[in-house]
């Protein structure tokens, strides 16, 4: 059978081919042919299966996936595994460095930082997830409408996009954040105001090409209405690039969310979030740098994992870089 990544967590630096632009290894190919053959009896692999295998062949993408999963599990279970909660105050144990009882130390009120930081990570992750969902939904639908109907529909949507591109992004976010900040859901919605644009442009571009193809004409000839054509026939065809864009949007969103919180314009304390944790401890960075560097490192690890996964998906979905094997 197919040999997929027996050692996925390889060091990317010594890894012979982390970008995995799939090259045919003749030996491996011979093995596979020996097993399966290329005869007519061979069952073709489904699109999803091919994509999954392409993704798994991309070492960095697998590293990203494993890292992200680990962080998600840690942030889900940190408060359940630990005897402390994110708001337990214990003045006797205040401002401790890392120790066995408190792996990341404690803050100035004696709250356990391991639980606090991972609870914050969980909020950051949820924020990024909401941004990804909202901007994908809005971006796909608006991009689809603009691309499919053209004319004035396209005109209005393109002008809205241009309008949002004229003013600098952080300015818009800050203005809205001042008005709506407080819960992570509101912050996520503020970030979504801008992040749907990229997806909408990509979907629109794809639709402009796809709507001229024969299968759309065939669907129209057999009596399908515009909504059915858009949602049943066209949107499934653009899910590839959109999927790549979702990971990149989530990665940008988690950093933007933390940036807003760092400026005290995002998720408000006492709710922990990676950005506001860093903001809280930036004053004591010289005495206890780990309090800032650990959440900073987590942010970077999450964003990087998502970028790696996006890169892997792009390669896996691109038929030009995919190993041709039916």
């Amino acid at each position: 059978m197919t040999e997929i990544d027996d050692n996925p967590i390889d060091d990317p630096l010594t890894d012979p081919n982390p970008l995995a632009v799939a090259e045919l290894d003749p030996r491996q190919l011979a093995d596979e042919l020996g097993d399966e053959g290329l005869g007519l009896g061979t069952k073709p692999k489904s699109f999803g299966r091919q994509t999954l295998e392409g993704f798994l062949r991309h070492r960095l993408a697998v590293v990203g996936f494993v890292t992200l999963t680990t962080i998600v599990f840690l942030s889900l279970f940190a408060s359940r595994l630990s005897p402390y909660t994110f708001s337990d105050i214990n003045i006797a144990d205040r401002a401790l460095g890392p120790s066995r009882a408190h792996p990341f130390g404690t803050d100035d009120l004696g709250r356990d930082l391991f639980v606090r930081i991972f609870d914050g990570t969980w909020i950051s992750l949820k924020l990024a997830f909401i941004v990804a969902i909202v901007s994908t939904a809005v971006g796909t639908v608006l991009g689809a409408l603009a691309g499919y109907f053209g004319r004035w529909v396209d005109g209005i949507i393109t002008q809205i996009i241009n309008l949002l591109l004229v003013v600098p992004g952080l300015v818009v976010l800050i203005v809205f954040a001042i008005k709506f900040r407080s819960t992570y859901i509101q912050v996520a919605l503020v970030i979504s105001i801008l992040s749907w644009i990229r997806i909408a442009r990509i979907v629109r571009g794809q639709f402009l090409q796809l709507k001229e193809l024969e299968f759309v004409q065939a669907a129209r000839a057999s009596g399908a209405g515009p909504l059915r054509i858009i949602f049943r026939h066209l949107i499934p065809n653009v899910m590839g690039p959109v999927l790549v864009e979702i990971t990149l949007t989530a990665s940008a969103a988690i950093i933007l969310g933390a940036t807003l919180s760092f400026l005290s314009l995002g998720v408000q304390p006492p709710t922990p979030e990676l950005g506001n944790i860093i903001n809280e401890f930036k004053g004591s960075i010289d005495s206890r740098p780990s309090r800032v560097l650990i959440p900073g490192f987590l942010l970077m690890a999450i964003a990087m994992s998502l970028n790696f996964m996006g890169d892997g998906l792009r390669d896996a979905l691109d038929p030009r870089t995919r190993k041709v094997r039916q």
Partner: peptide, 27 residues
């Protein structure tokens, strides 16, 4: 090896939040 090093560093540069890098450099 140098290509991979540069690639890894570029990804890190993109993913590193500005405020974390700034605070780190100050310390």
């Amino acid at each position: 090896l140098s290509d991979y090093t540069i690639t890894a560093l570029s990804f890190a540069g993109i993913a590193l939040p500005t405020f974390v890098l700034g605070l780190f450099l100050q310390v």
